[in-house]
C-alpha cells in the first residue's frame, strides 16, 4: 500500500521536474531553436533543430515530444562537443559519483565520529572546540579550501597531485590520490552538517529512558553508545546523509572546477559558459532524478533501522 503510494508520488514529482526543466527552455528569451543551437547559428542547424523538436508546434505538443525523447534515452545533442548528451552524461557521471561517494565516506567517518565524541563530552571544552570546528566547516567556502589545500598539500609539500583525473581502470592508486583532495574539500561541509546532526541526535538519545535502563543493566559505556544509542541516533542522521549525497552530486561544481575533475559539475560549468543549453537541461534533469531516488533510499534506510516503521506500527 504505502510502497505503491510512494512510487506514485515519485512519478508525480518526476513529472513536475520534467515540466520545470522543459519550462526553463520556454522561459529563456529568444527563439528556442537558436538557444538550442548554441554557438552554431547557421540557418540549416536552426531549421534542423526546429524540425527535430517540433518547435513550430504548440508548447504542450513540444513537451510531449521532448519527454518522449527523454524517455527513450535521447537527451539531445551537445552542439559544442558534437556528441549525444546521454553519452556525455554517461561518461562524466561516474566520475562525479565516485567523487561524491568518497566525499560522503569522508564526511560520515569524520562527521559521525566527531559528533559522537561531542555528544559524549557535551558542554565540555572538547565539545566547544568541536562546535567551533563545525562552524568553520560550514562557513568556509569550498573553493577557498580547495585552493588552500592545493597550495599546501600539492604545491608546497607535493604529497598529492594538484589537479587532473586518472580513470580507476588505468591506475586505481592514482585515481584515488587524484580524487582525495577534491573529496576532502567537497566533504567538509557535509561532515560539519553530519557532525551537528549526530551530536544533537546522540544527545537526545543518551537522555532517553532506555539508555538509563541499559545503564541500570550494568552495560559498559561503549556498549551503551554503540549498541543502544548509535542505532537510534542514526535514524535521523541517515536521512540527512542521503539528502546530502544529492547535494554533493549537484554541488560538486566548484570543486570539480578548482581541481579540474572531469565530472558532471565541470560539464555543467563548461556548458553554461558555452551556451550548450541541451546539456545544461539534461544535467539538471538527471541531478533532480538523483535527488528523488536518494530520498527514496533514505526512507529505505530509515525502514531498516527502525522496526516501528518496518512493521507498520506508529512511529
Amino acid at each position: 500500500m504505502r510502497l505503491l503510494q510512494r512510487i506514485a508520488s515519485i512519478l508525480v514529482t518526476l513529472l513536475l521536474l520534467s515540466i520545470l526543466v522543459f519550462a526553463l527552455q520556454q522561459l529563456l528569451p529568444g527563439d528556442t531553436a537558436v538557444i538550442l543551437a548554441g554557438e552554431d547559428r547557421s540557418p540549416e542547424t536552426i531549421a534542423a533543430i526546429t524540425e527535430k523538436y517540433g518547435l513550430d508546434r504548440p508548447v504542450p505538443i513540444q513537451y510531449l515530444h521532448w519527454i518522449g525523447n527523454v524517455l527513450t534515452g535521447d537527451l539531445g545533442q551537445s552542439m559544442r562537443l558534437n556528441q549525444s548528451v546521454a553519452n556525455l552524461i554517461l561518461t562524466k557521471l561516474p566520475v562525479t559519483i565516485q567523487l561524491a561517494t568518497m566525499a560522503l565516506l569522508f564526511a560520515i567517518v569524520i562527521g559521525v565520529s566527531i559528533g559522537i565524541v561531542a555528544a559524549l563530552k557535551a558542554n565540555t571544552l572538547v565539545d566547544h572546540f568541536v562546535g567551533l570546528i563545525g562552524t568553520l566547516g560550514l562557513s568556509v567556502p569550498n573553493f577557498w579550501l580547495g585552493i588552500l589545500l592545493i597550495m599546501l598539500v600539492a604545491v608546497q609539500w607535493q604529497w598529492l597531485p594538484a589537479s587532473g583525473y586518472v580513470s580507476p581502470f588505468e591506475d586505481l592508486g592514482q585515481n584515488l590520490s587524484s580524487l582525495l583532495l577534491p573529496s576532502l574539500v567537497l566533504g567538509t561541509h557535509v561532515a560539519a552538517v553530519l557532525m551537528r546532526h549526530t551530536r544533537s541526535a546522540m544527545l537526545e538519545v543518551l537522555n532517553a529512558d532506555y539508555i538509563r535502563t541499559a545503564r541500570a543493566k550494568g552495560m559498559p559505556g561503549r556498549h551503551i553508545v554503540f549498541r543502544h544509542a548509535l542505532r537510534n541516533a542514526l535514524v535521523p542522521v541517515v536521512t540527512v546523509g542521503a539528502l546530502e549525497f544529492g547535494q554533493l552530486l549537484g554541488g560538486s561544481v566548484l570543486t570539480e572546477f578548482v581541481f579540474t575533475v572531469p565530472g558532471i559539475g565541470k560539464l555543467i560549468v563548461d556548458s553554461v559558459f558555452n551556451r550548450d543549453f541541451a546539456v545544461v537541461q539534461a544535467v539538471v534533469l538527471v541531478t533532480g532524478m538523483f535527488y528523488i531516488v536518494l530520498n527514496l533510499l533514505a526512507d529505505g534506510a530509515h525502514l531498516l533501522l527502525d522496526p516501528r516503521v518496518r512493521h507498520g506500527g506508529r512511529p
Binding site: 532517553a208 529512558d209 542505532r231 522496526p307
Partner: peptide, 12 residues
C-alpha cells in the same frame, strides 16, 4: 522504572 513505554530500546 516508572515509564514502561520508553524504558525499553525501541530498535531491539
Amino acid at each position: 522504572f516508572q515509564e514502561p513505554m520508553t524504558s525499553l530500546n525501541p530498535t531491539m
